[in-house]
Design a binder for these strands. Structure first.
Length: 641
RNA sequence: GCCGCGGUAGCUCAGGGGUAGAGCACCCCCUUGGUAAGGGGGAGGUCGGUGGUUCAAUUCCACUCCGCGGCACCA
């Protein structure tokens, strides 16, 4: 049989011709010894393959090394396999399940009677390093499906057997063998465990449901991180430390903004400084909404249970609600949403088409009984304040209103430095009220409105509110984390249920469209996001204490009081520090609680009528006449608009 | 809600079957010091709660509450 020539096209466009089939390894070697050593895998006509796979026909081939994103993913994937191998060596009875790559690393879920604890991690890690040192060859094997199922069953690996059983018919069952360890895997993998290197670390253990379903048994998951080299690993660990430093729970305590306590799990006790920040956000939002043509209302926190039956909340949201009763035997519920109360305000008096659109805002505090395990500082609480609003309009006005809301949200986020905002469109969930026809109609209308904004969005099937489809606004903070904040929901159901209407031009009753929207979402959570986004260093307009006037010696006390009065007079939130302490001590203390500006005054400033301005985090001192300094700050501290 | 870990002074944490300790913060005294900790002294805790084992429990056990990391759920 005459050998077939093989023509390989490389990424730079060059072409290599071989007399017979070769492997990726041989191809890499033909290019250079360095590449041969670095080669982890390859793509053949775009498809990722093991580096030792044969190249039997003409193809475009690109050698993957650790430098490639795909190469890094391979390292992480292999790291998961090496971890599973280590675990099986140490505790042979442990069952292995799945071990995918995730952002920054990987995890592997194991099934065993005794869950792992973090004390097991060093031992596993040590064994992993041994396996890397052994440099075991990793090879792909394709097995007959039934044989594979039997094999894993015989090994006591019920989960693996189940995974294979569930593979679609016709899909190849591939296994990867390294040393004595063999695992079901689609691949590809590194050619040997030695290629993994040592830049990995096991991070934490956690419980996780089999197949992510809370009805299934809980497995024990080990998370690890894995990088190209020690330097990258170090940088990642350092980044984690930095993120920890800006944890809003820690900063909230240090800056004396709020606290939590047992008597009301998941509810915030706001301290004066935290509440100042909270109120500033509301003040800002009021202004923006006022400019955008909104009016504001306030509705009761506790409403008759029957109302929540009418709205559908008891049925569809009931297990997330707080209920209460009074000595007279009446049943109430704490509002988990503001909409029903808002609808009752709309329903007061006749509305004309001339009144629409009506944009009605409410800073309503809602209570939701969240699962205990979900609570997390300000980010996930059981009582929170929404910057809620309901827009009542006609179907024709609806698109325009959606565009306006979208523009408002994006513009407001910019004032906080959130420029990177993603939009998500969610349609009907399983648990919902209303007919499919109504859902068809609202989904179509909302989607058209979304498309009319001209912005990109991602589709999130089945994630809508129980009364209507929605658009969510997800912002990215200073350290790259995503937060879902704003929401815009289309609702044809509640108007129906509460039978609200307006009188149209034709003199007849018509059903209005109701849009639910929130921009910050939860004020509590938004404060948490801001604290972490700014690492506690809030912009001047939001800082609870904007300026501290600190004296150097008591000779400056009288003048410091003057400066303090001038600042207060100008509306600046200023505090006076005339304690008998050294200036170093005062500077340190106020810096730690992140006061943005300090006025330092001593004899010199008192004599000259100036202040020495020190900005948080800066060593610089700016000397300005008091009046000028106050004027500049007033300008700088203005609420954005 | 589920799995694992934890709860000791205001904060960060050590300790451990014989009723507790450090640093910082707090209070008092000395110090009047030019931009991130001046010095000395003092006060402060029924060791999350309830039961149990024990001569004796903060320590061991059970239950419970709360928190932390995930999972599930979600603004």
């Amino acid at each position: 049989m005459a050998s077939q020539k093989v023509k390989i096209t490389l990424p730079d466009g060059s072409v290599k011709v071989f007399d017979a089939a070769i492997t990726g390894e041989q191809l890499a070697a033909s290019i250079g010894p360095g590449l041969a050593k670095a080669a982890l895998a390859m793509t053949v006509d775009g498809e990722l393959k093991d580096i030792y796979s044969p190249l039997e026909k003409d193809a475009a081939v690109s050698i993957i090394t650790a430098k490639d994103e795909q190469g890094l993913e391979l390292l992480r994937h292999d790291c998961a396999h090496v971890m599973a191998e280590a675990v099986k060596e140490l505790w042979p009875k442990t069952q292995i399940t799945i071990g995918p790559v995730i952002e920054n690393g990987f995890y592997y879920d194991f099934a065993r009677a005794e869950p792992f604890t973090k004390d097991d991690l060093p031992k596993i890690e040590e064994r992993m390093r041994e396996i890397v040192k052994r440099d075991e060859t990793i090879r792909r094997e394709v097995w007959d499906r039934d044989k594979a199922i039997k094999f894993f069953k015989d090994q006591g690996e019920a989960y693996k057997a189940e995974i294979i059983s569930d593979l679609p018919e016709g899909e190849e069952v591939s296994l990867y063998r390294q040393g004595d360890f063999i695992d079901l895997c689609r691949g590809p993998h590194l050619p040997s465990t030695g290629k993994l290197g040592t830049a990995f670390k096991l991070m934490k253990v956690a419980g996780a449901y089999w197949r992510g379903d809370s009805g299934n048994e809980m497995l024990t998951r080990i998370y690890g991180t894995c990088w190209r080299d020690k330097k990258e690993l170090g940088a990642y660990l350092h980044m984690l430390e930095e993120a920890e430093k800006r944890d809003h729970r820690k900063l909230g305590r240090e800056m004396d903004l709020f606290h939590f306590q047992e008597e009301s799990p998941g509810a915030v006790f706001w301290h004066p400084k935290g509440w100042t920040l909270f109120l500033k956000l509301i003040e800002y939002m009021r202004k923006r909404q006022d400019d955008a043509g909104y009016v504001e209302i306030s509705t009761p926190d506790i409403l008759d249970r029957e109302l929540w039956v009418t709205s559908g909340h008891v049925e569809k949201f009931g297990e997330n609600m707080f209920y209460t009763s009074t000595p007279d035997g009446r049943e109430y519920a704490l509002k988990p949403m503001n909409c029903p109360g808002g609808v009752l305000v709309y329903a007061q008096g006749l509305k004309s088409y001339r009144d629409l659109p009506m944009r009605v805002a409410e800073f309503g505090k809602v209570h939701r009984f969240e699962p205990s395990g979900a609570l997390h500082g300000l980010m996930r609480v059981r009582a929170f304040t929404q910057d809620d609003a309901h827009i009542y309009c006609t179907l024709e006005q609806m698109k325009d209103e959606c565009i306006k809301v979208t523009e408002l949200i994006l513009d407001i986020y910019k004032d906080f430095g959130f420029a990177d905002v993603a939009l998500k469109f969610s349609d009907r969930p399983e648990r919902r009220i209303g007919s499919d026809e109504v859902w068809d109609k609202s989904e179509k209308a909302l989607k058209e409105a979304l498309e009319a904004t001209g912005r990109d969005y991602v589709y999130n099937p089945g994630e809508g509110a129980f009364y209507g489809p929605k658009i969510d606004f997800v912002l990215r903070d200073a350290i790259g984390r995503d937060w879902q904040c704003g929401t815009l929901q289309m609702d044809l159901n509640l108007p129906e249920r509460f039978d609200i209407y307006y009188i149209g031009e034709d003199g007849n009753k018509h059903r209005p469209v109701m849009l639910h929207r929130a921009l910050f979402g939860s004020l509590e959570r938004f404060v948490g996001i801001l604290i972490e986004h700014y690492a506690g260093r809030l912009p001047l307009w939001l800082a609870p204490i904007q300026v501290v006037i600190a004296t150097i010696t008591s000779d400056g006390d009288d003048y410091a009081k003057e400066a303090h009065a001038a600042l207060r007079e100008a509306g600046i939130r200023a505090e006076l520090d005339i304690r008998n302490e050294k200036i170093n001590y005062k500077v340190r203390e106020h810096s730690l609680v992140k006061v943005p500006v300090m006025f330092v005054v001593g004899k010199r400033e008192a004599k000259e009528g100036t202040v020495s301005i020190r900005r948080l985090g800066s060593q610089n001192q700016e000397i300005l006449p008091l009046k000028e300094a106050v004027g500049a700050l007033v300008k700088e501290a203005r609420i954005p608009s």
